[in-house]
Simulated assay, not measured.
Amino acid sequence: MDAIVNWVVSLMELMGAPGVGIAILLENLFPPIPSEVVLPLAGFTITQGSLSFWPTYIWATIGAWVGALLLYWVGAAVGAARLRRIADWMWLVEGEDVDRALSWFDKYGPASVFFGRLVPGVRSLISIPAGIDRMNVVKFSAWTLLGSGIWNAILIGLGMWLGDAWDQVAVYVDQYSTVVYILLALILVLVFGWLIRREITNKRARAAADQGTTTVIEEKPYR
Rank of each mutant, 00 (worst) to 15 (best):
D133I: 14
W151I: 02
I33P: 00
F114M: 06
W65C: 11
V38A: 03
V5I: 15
F140R: 02
E94I: 07
V180D: 05
I58V: 12
L14Y: 14
R206A: 13
T215Y: 11
G19T: 05
F114V: 07
P129N: 04
V66K: 06
L92A: 05
D164H: 14
G67N: 00
Y176M: 12
V122G: 02
G157W: 05
L92G: 00
A205G: 10
W166K: 01
M1F: 11
F115M: 06
A170I: 08
D2W: 11
I46K: 00
G16I: 06
N136F: 10
M15I: 10
T61E: 08
V169S: 04
L102Q: 02
A87M: 02
F115Q: 02
A60I: 08
F53P: 00
W65Q: 09
L188A: 13
W73Q: 02
V169H: 04
W104Y: 12
D210T: 13
R134V: 09
T214V: 15
L39Y: 01
P18G: 04
V173W: 05
N202R: 15
I150N: 06
A81E: 14
V93R: 01
G212I: 03
V216E: 15
R134C: 06
I132R: 01
I22V: 14
A64Y: 06
N152P: 04
I196H: 11
E199W: 08
Y222V: 15
P129G: 05
A87G: 02
F192C: 09
A111P: 10
R134G: 04
P120L: 05
I196P: 05
A87I: 04
E96P: 02
V122N: 03
N202W: 14
F105Q: 00
S10H: 12
S10Q: 13
V113I: 13
V122L: 11
I46S: 02
S50H: 13
I217D: 13
V119T: 09
G193M: 11
V8G: 01
I126Q: 00
A208N: 06
R100E: 07
D133R: 13
W91Y: 12
G49S: 04
W54T: 09
V74R: 05
E219I: 12
A153T: 07
I86Y: 08
T61R: 10
L83M: 08
P120T: 05
G163R: 07
A81H: 13
G95E: 01
R223Q: 14
S103D: 13
S177M: 09
S148G: 08
V171F: 15
F192M: 11
Q168S: 15
S148E: 01
K107D: 07
V173K: 02
A130R: 00
A42W: 01
G149I: 08
Y72A: 03
A42V: 05
